[in-house]
């Protein structure tokens, strides 16, 4: 889906990141002028290889950089049209921006249901009952209902990812930042989870910024995609167009070219070529 042209009357996109730079420990620059937009109601994919800066981008948006001694040194981030700079992370969550972090980050010592109870803090100052949201979580993930009193640390990787997404559902956000939900899961589970991600987007109208290393997966649910390398966006476009792009097919979808044996070597060459273009 193309990004609708912005007119004065149109509501602002749910997320607008403009030229941000991120620096860790005042010395290590990780993002170098990154911009992206998430239109309301859409799933936008953010792709890139390991270490490109995808997770850092999400932490910049959810204001979690401070915990790792990182800071946004330039640029602006607007959520629902309002700048988020300086807003404590928990208040941003309460305003409707929910970050499902890489590696699931469930509370292992808490039971499944207590994990959901913890997420009710995201509803602070909001109307509507949390109990109804629990029912919704269990509707999407019947497994979790069965295991609701189990210590979350004992769940399988797939169930932990479901719980991490379930906490977001409790929060009832307008935007979910989803960091590599497929990480370490079997293909069957990944398929199941991506189907639910698409359903949540369609049924709840939740906008999503989806980070993935697996481009084919992301293209299946997203409408628009950004591809980043070393802290910058290098290509972006509607997923149909990205999926036809020769470079993207070759380096992110593993299609085209001659066989797969030398992919890592060519990845390096490609990376260097890009770097030359950009510097």
């Amino acid at each position: 889906m193309p990004i609708p042209a912005q007119t004065a009357a149109a509501p602002p996109p749910v997320l607008e990141v403009t030229n941000i730079e991120v620096v860790f420990k005042k010395t290590v620059q990780v993002l170098r002028g990154l911009s992206l937009t998430v239109p309301r109601g859409c799933i936008v994919a953010l792709l890139g290889s390991n270490g490109a800066g995808k997770s850092t981008t999400l932490k910049a948006v959810s204001n979690l950089l401070g915990l790792e001694n990182g800071a946004i040194s330039a640029g602006t981030i607007r959520f629902d049209g309002r700048p988020v700079a300086g807003l404590p992370p928990h208040e941003l969550v309460r305003a409707g921006l929910f970050h499902v972090m890489e590696g699931r980050r469930i509370f292992e010592d808490l039971s499944v249901e207590e994990n959901l109870v913890a997420a009710t803090y995201a509803r602070t100052g909001r109307a509507g009952s949390a109990a109804g949201r629990f029912d919704l979580v269990y509707e999407y993930f019947p497994n979790l209902h069965e295991r609701r009193s189990v210590r979350a640390g004992y769940l399988s990787g797939g169930e932990q990812q479901m719980l991490a997404i379930g906490r977001a559902l409790v929060a009832e956000p307008s935007l979910i930042l989803l960091d590599e939900p497929s990480l370490g899961l079997s293909p069957r589970l990944v398929e199941e989870i991506f189907a639910i991600i698409a359903r949540i987007n369609a049924e709840q109208g939740t906008s999503m910024l989806l980070v993935e290393q697996n481009a084919a997966l992301a293209f299946a649910v997203a409408s628009y995609g950004y591809i980043m390398e070393t802290g910058r966006i290098v290509i972006d476009g509607p997923v149909e167009r990205l999926a036809r792009d020769r470079d993207v097919r070759e380096f992110y979808l593993g299609l085209g070219g001659a066989g797969g044996e030398h992919r890592s070597y060519r990845d390096v060459k490609h990376y260097k070529r890009r770097k030359r273009w950009l510097s």
Binding site: L67, P89, V93, M101, R105, F107, D109, Y121, A122, A171
Partner: peptide, 10 residues
């Protein structure tokens, strides 16, 4: 258990 995750759920 996890300070960043606690922030992330509000």
């Amino acid at each position: 258990g996890d300070r960043a995750a606690a922030y992330s759920v509000g």
